[in-house]
């Protein structure tokens, strides 16, 4: 099955970690992609910081364009990756080893892709 895994952080919470810890964890994310190469599909991207986000939302006459992310939530999506694994347990097992999960406020959401 194919799943999108969405990497999120909560910047205010992540600030509690030391800069060295953050840097170390980020460095290990490269190894993580390498280790799990065989389940990674072509689809995936790391996103520019949330300060670069622009949102187009429903408006009266026409859509409204505004600065900022779509959600007021403190969590910020940092990137996503499509993986292809046998089942949810396999997806969970891989996601549990995501190095940034050592940092406070980091969470990864797993969602199956619709198959037609």
């Amino acid at each position: 099955m194919k799943y999108v895994i969405m990497f999120t952080t909560t910047p205010e919470l992540e600030a509690a970690a030391s800069p060295e810890q953050v840097e170390q964890a980020y460095r290990r994310t490269y190894d993580w992609f390498g280790t799990h190469r065989e389940v990674m599909t072509e689809s995936g991207a790391q996103l520019q910081p949330v300060t670069t986000a622009t949102t187009v939302s429903h408006g009266g006459d026409e859509p409204v364009v505004a600065d900022g992310p779509f959600s007021e939530a403190r969590e910020v999506i940092g990137g996503f990756q499509v993986i292809d694994v046998p089942d949810l347990d396999a997806a969970i097992a891989i996601v549990k080893t995501w190095p940034l999960l050592e940092l406070p406020g980091v969470a990864v959401e797993i969602r199956p892709i619709v198959v037609y």
Partner: peptide
């Protein structure tokens, strides 16, 4: 069903 939760003893 939709998320592929396996029915097995871990």
């Amino acid at each position: 069903g939709a998320t592929g939760i396996p029915l097995r003893i871990p």
